[in-house]
C-alpha cells in the first residue's frame, strides 16, 4: 500500500494542478497577511475559502485522478496486489498530496508572518486540520462516485452535484425548513442538521473557536455547550471520521466486487 501511495503521491506532486493548488494557497496566504495584519480576520477569510474550496478541489481531483489513471489502475490490478491496497493507496496518495498543498501552502506565509508565536496558532492549526479532514472526506466520496459510474461524464456530474448539495443546497434546505417552522424551538434541529453535513460541521467547529461565535447568539450557546465539552469535540471528530471511514469501507467493498 505504501508503494502505491508513494507513486500516486509523486504522480500528483508532479502534476501542474498540484502546483497551481499549492501556489494558490501560498499566494492567498501572503496576500491575506499583506492586506490585514489581523490574524483572526485572516482566519475568517480563510475559513470562507477553505470550507468551500477543499471539498470542491478534493472532489474534482478525486474524480479526475480515478478516471485518468483508470488504465494504469488496470495495469496495477494485473500485478500481484490486493485490490484494497491499490485503491486505498491511490486514495491516500491523492489525499496526502492535496492536504500537503494546503498545509504547506498556507503554512509558509503564516510562519513567515510569525503566527506561530501568536495565540491564533491554535485556531490556524485547527483550520488546517479541518481543511485536511474535508479533503479526506471529499476525495473518499469522489472515489466512491468514480467507482460507481464507469461513465466519466456521469461520474463528474454526480461529483459536482454532491459538492453542490453539501456546500450550498443543504444549507438552503436547512434555511427553508427553519423559516417554515420558526415558531418551534429549532436549536436541536440546527444541531442535528449541522452534524450530518461535514462542511457545515467544519464551519461551525471553526466558528465556535473564533470569537465571532458570540454572534451566534442563543443557538450558538447551545452549540458551544455541545461542542465546547471534550465529549462534544470527540463526537464532532468522530462524525468527521465516520465521513471518511464509511466511504473508505465502501471503496474497499465496491472495489472487491467490481469488474475492470
Amino acid at each position: 500500500m505504501i508503494k502505491i501511495l508513494k507513486y500516486s503521491f509523486y504522480d500528483l506532486m508532479r502534476s501542474r494542478w498540484s502546483y497551481i493548488y499549492f501556489l494558490f494557497y501560498l499566494i492567498l496566504g501572503f496576500v491575506l497577511f499583506f492586506l490585514n495584519s489581523d490574524v483572526n480576520k485572516a482566519i475568517i477569510t480563510l475559513l470562507n475559502i477553505i470550507i468551500v474550496l477543499t471539498p470542491l478541489i478534493g472532489t474534482v481531483f478525486g474524480i479526475m485522478y480515478y478516471y485518468t489513471s483508470r488504465e494504469f489502475t488496470e495495469l496495477l490490478l494485473s500485478q500481484p496486489l490486493k485490490r484494497s491496497t491499490i485503491f486505498v493507496g491511490q486514495y491516500l496518495g491523492i489525499v496526502i498530496s492535496l492536504s500537503l498543498s494546503l498545509v504547506v501552502g498556507l503554512g509558509i506565509p503564516f510562519i513567515a508572518y510569525g503566527v506561530t508565536r501568536s495565540a491564533a496558532v491554535w485556531n490556524f492549526s485547527s483550520l488546517l486540520f479541518i481543511g485536511a479532514f474535508l479533503t479526506f472526506i471529499f476525495v473518499a466520496l469522489a472515489y466512491n462516485i468514480a467507482l460507481t459510474f464507469n461513465d466519466k461524464i456521469k461520474g463528474f456530474g454526480f461529483a459536482i452535484l454532491l459538492w453542490l448539495v453539501m456546500a450550498v443546497i443543504y444549507d438552503g434546505l436547512i434555511m427553508i425548513v427553519m423559516m417554515q417552522y420558526s415558531d418551534y424551538p429549532l436549536d436541536n434541529f440546527a444541531l442535528a442538521a449541522v452534524i450530518f453535513n461535514p462542511i457545515d460541521l467544519s464551519r461551525i467547529l471553526i466558528l465556535l473557536k473564533l470569537d465571532i461565535s458570540a454572534l451566534l447568539g442563543y443557538t450558538g450557546a447551545v452549540f458551544q455547550r455541545f461542542f465546547g465539552t471534550s465529549m462534544g469535540m470527540i463526537i464532532a471528530v468522530s462524525i468527521l471520521s465516520v465521513w471518511v471511514i464509511l466511504p473508505l469501507l465502501r471503496i474497499i467493498s465496491v472495489a472487491r466486487k467490481k469488474d475492470f
Binding site: 456546500a167 450550498v168 443546497i169 444549507d171 434555511m175 423559516m179 429549532l186
Partner: peptide, 19 residues
C-alpha cells in the same frame, strides 16, 4: 432572515448565504 428566524444564524459564512 436572521431577524425573522434567529436560529438561521448558524448558517453564517456558508457559501449559500454569500450567494
Amino acid at each position: 432572515i436572521v431577524n425573522r428566524t434567529p436560529e438561521t444564524i448558524i448558517l453564517m459564512r456558508s457559501l449559500f448565504i454569500d450567494i
